[in-house]
Design a protein around this nucleic acid. Structure first.
Lengths: 167, 167
DNA sequence: TTAAACTTTCAAAAATTATTGAAAGTTTAT
DNA sequence: ATAAACTTTCAATAATTTTTGAAAGTTTAA
């Protein structure tokens, strides 16, 4: 496998992996491309490399910026905007974990809390609903707590400390 | 909120959450329904409750069984097949984590390993590709290791021990 | 102020994914 | 062996999500 093949394989794998961390293919591919680029890229560069339209590129770059994963770089003397992504994997993991907690886990916790708090009318079905949503609420809460703890540590904690803990 | 409202809210929230843990809406809703049911349900029951077709129910039940989350129950004297889901949230979390590791994380680790092993031809782009995919490989490996450690512990370890660790 | 260079928006089209329902398949009881 | 009771399959359809591209918008230089 040479550079070109490796690059393509990485971008396409990372792209199809997008769903795992809750973003779409183009968004994941743009991030992947920036992640292995040695310098910031313009919209043209990205469109060209990934063979996607201007609109698609624009919208997905915006989303990546919303996530806090990609930043605009101003290059002096250049009219175009250039983009680059967070290059440190630890920091990247922290950002993704934090955003997913905020966007997806927190709202679910809210619903589970609400549902598990309905009045117990003595019916066995009601009892089961309360019991199970409560259990789910506790689990989700614990997991979210974990994630946020990890997320608020500074870099290297993840590899260094967790590796030790779980040995 | 009464029982019916609570039940519906739970099922629909859990359903739309399906994407977070990598399964589709109907599949997640069937699991949710079984999760709060006090007894095993037949295909008819599920179709009726969720207003989905026979084919859809059949296919999604099969997938849930593939995941190891749902099991067929034989009820003596009954011709129909009945289904029930794992009721323990800890066990459920273990199954899901294990399956996702196997289905999604492991294959990505394989690709990252391959790409990060390409020959360094001295070009700065090649160097960056190797460096970044290697970093991602290490991170993903660590995370997968963590997940599998958690997954191989017996129940209650998650809440009890991790809560302590992360305090 | 104007025009060139560039980016964003968004309705329409394309691609993907999920769902239906009826025919085919299977199992069980007699 | 037959038929009733039930489940699975899968081609067609529907729903959803993604992508396009051109018009509208913005910024900069002169």
């Amino acid at each position: 496998m040479n550079y070109k093949e490796g690059k393509e394989k990485f971008i396409s794998t990372w792209g199809s992996l997008g769903s795992l961390w809750g973003i779409n293919k183009a968004m994941a591919q743009i991030q992947a491309l920036l992640f292995i680029s040695t310098k910031p890229l313009s919209m043209e560069d990205i469109m060209e490399e990934l063979k996607i339209s201007r609109g698609n590129t624009s919208m997905n770059l915006r989303q990546l910026m919303d996530w806090g994963i990609v930043t605009k770089e101003i290059i002096p003397g250049e009219r175009k905007e250039y983009f680059s992504t967070e290059k440190d994997v630890q920091e990247l993991a922290r950002i993704v974990a934090k955003e997913r907690s905020r966007r997806e886990i927190k709202p679910v916790i809210k619903v589970l809390k609400e549902v598990s708090s309905i009045k117990d009318d003595g019916n066995e079905n009601t009892k089961e609903l309360i019991k199970q949503t409560q259990a789910l609420h506790e689990l989700t809460d614990t997991m979210d707590l974990m994630i946020n703890k990890v997320v608020n540590q500074n870099q290297n904690w993840l590899t260094k400390s967790l590796l030790k803990l779980f040995k």
